[in-house]
Design a protein around this nucleic acid. Structure first.
Lengths: 339, 339
DNA sequence: ACTGGCACTCTATGGCCGTGAGTGCCAATA
DNA sequence: TATTGGCACTCACGGCCATAGAGTGCCAGT
């Protein structure tokens, strides 16, 4: 009973602070929410909440502001599911309509997510690690240059130009192509190493050095996860904030430029298909202590292949962000599985 | 003589304002530069410069600030060539070292440019319009799905998945592939339409509908596809400014997210291999009235294929930006031509 | 357990004023 | 004629003070 109201107060504080951006006092609280008690009672509750670490005051005689711990409690126990509005449904179906290309899907997704949440959106390209090889293609560009193309069943296409140590005759290249194609088609990208082991030895010693380079490059493309690309959108939304958050955007923008950092962040919140939230100091990156990350994994046929999410100030609208992230992740999974 | 000193004063004002960020007064000017005259003389010159529209004062009894017209004069007639420092040379050669892939070259270039100028850098992918076809590849993904890959001699690789109206037999596909390959290899991308005209009619009526789709897609990739990509880097540099420029980043960030806008801007400054500058209101985009764009085209074998540049506040360091842009454009052209 | 009331604390706001940088003008000068 | 020193004037900025108001904590009463 008492606990219940305290949590209701916390929820009200979070909601008010998120919408106004200013510390919220006891009087304003009872005015805006029908809590059924007087401001004095609220004050007692607020004092208790402050003792427990859920809220804090910027200075004496100012309203209260949620702490990271407060947001955490809000997210874990208080925020209800916010259904999508019809406009949002329409936006998503519009987005579904024009999907042609994987690149296209990615850039549309990131724009959609940024628009729905009015925050910075991140979408990671499907990883090759969990994917299977649908096809490979080897094209001779010149005597000593090859183009190697690898097509995964997620629709992702990777290509790499290979510089050969020596020319390779056309008929030998044809044999190599056939042999490699039959070896890797349908295999998991992560399992290519054992499959390709020993293949070079099947061929004459004249083409072995070239073949070694080709196989090495193929493994590099398939396994090296550092190649992961992330698309970013809605950066301008950061500048919309007029509070202290906008005052030091620098570390945030810096973090957003570091692919490595982003991959690490997304990796941490995209373990499953549930929406995960990192709030303020829960972030492993110093520059992001004032921001929160809402993310989720998405996948193909029940397997998580990549992550997506949004980044914004800790005082973001979590319910909106969480439902948007969840929905887009689901739609994206559906599209991938249909392909 | 008189004209000479007035211009020297203008140059000094621009330089001081760029480095300090604050309106510059007559006294500060004579202190920091050895102009050989007293502050009263400078005041007369400044009044004249103001009459002519080169400088302005934010309010009475404040120092002067260059106008867009002042920057324009500075850029056109006053800024000397600033040679690259050894550290900068080293940065560029380091950048040259690890170039493997076209994607890699692009992302390295943009980072390099952002680092050299400490501003937002843009690099446009080489256009296909001026390029020739080095190779095409048609891969059957399933009965009714093809992957079409086009490799240009700029190193750019475009791919597109094609949904066929009906299956196409393997042997027919082989013929189509051979025919198309011989038709387009070595041709200019912009000249593909006449080359491919009538090719469909050479084949049996059963595969004609499919072939039409394939050819249409190829043309789309090669010609119509103005879907030019632009890589962007150094956005965090925008937030480094502590003056009024940082106060409204929003329109700038918005403009930077609009590929269309960026393409238009870059297109305007990358006509030739000379560095071009758009200052403040010279920009066609309202949100960029407070920014300047320094850009240049780069190319392959004397032909301009794309543009690159930097975006920053009008009070940027033009000499630094201009030399950086020029150098990177030259190095990029060299790399492309070597390929 | 809740409420009304009250004293207290601070921040934010606005007016006031002195300071100083910067200007324009003018008479004197080389 | 171009330059200079001098001088009065303007105006943003920072410090200071008083006031207003929002918000708190506490306590006694129900």
């Amino acid at each position: 009973m008492l606990e219940d109201r305290r949590l209701a107060v916390l929820r009200a504080i979070v909601e008010d602070y998120v919408s106004t951006g200013e510390p919220v006092g006891s009087k304003a609280l009872v005015d805006r929410h029908s809590l059924g008690v007087s401001s004095a009672t609220i004050r007692n509750d607020m004092a208790a909440l402050e003792d427990e670490g859920y809220i804090a005051q910027p200075h004496t005689s100012a309203g209260r502001v949620p702490t990271d711990m407060g947001y955490r409690a809000f997210v874990d126990r208080l925020s209800g599911v916010k259904p999508l509005s019809s406009a949002e449904r329409r936006a998503i179906s519009d987005f579904l309509a024009g999907a042609v290309d994987l690149d296209d899907v990615m850039s549309r997704s990131v724009r959609l997510l940024a628009q729905l949440t009015r925050q910075v959106a991140l979408v990671q390209y499907p990883s090759l690690v969990q994917a299977s090889v649908r096809h490979i293609e080897i094209v001779a560009l010149s005597e000593t240059r090859l183009l190697l193309v690898l097509i995964a069943d997620t629709g992702r296409v990777e290509q790499r130009v290979i510089e050969l140590p020596a020319p390779i005759p056309d008929e030998a290249l044809g044999q190599v192509r056939t042999r490699l194609l039959s070896a890797v088609t349908g295999e998991r990208c992560s399992d290519l190493a054992p499959v390709l082991d020993g293949v070079a030895e099947e061929f004459s010693t004249e083409v072995q050095p070239q073949l070694v380079v080709i196989i090495a490059t193929m493994l590099e493309i398939a396994v090296a996860r550092e190649e992961q690309r992330i698309v970013l959108g809605g950066t301008a939304n950061l500048a919309r904030y007029r509070d202290s958050f906008a005052a030091n955007l620098e570390p945030v923008l810096e973090a957003l430029e570091e692919q490595v950092v982003l991959l690490r962040l997304l990796g941490e919140v995209s373990g499953g298909d549930e929406v995960t939230v990192r709030i303020g100091h829960e972030n492993p990156v110093e520059g992001l202590y004032g921001t929160s990350l809402v993310g989720s994994g998405y996948g193909r046929d029940e397997t998580i292949v990549a992550g997506l999410g949004v980044v914004g100030p800790t005082h973001m609208d979590y319910p909106v962000s969480m439902t948007a992230v969840r929905s887009v992740a689901q739609y994206l999974s559906r599209i991938l599985s249909e392909t």
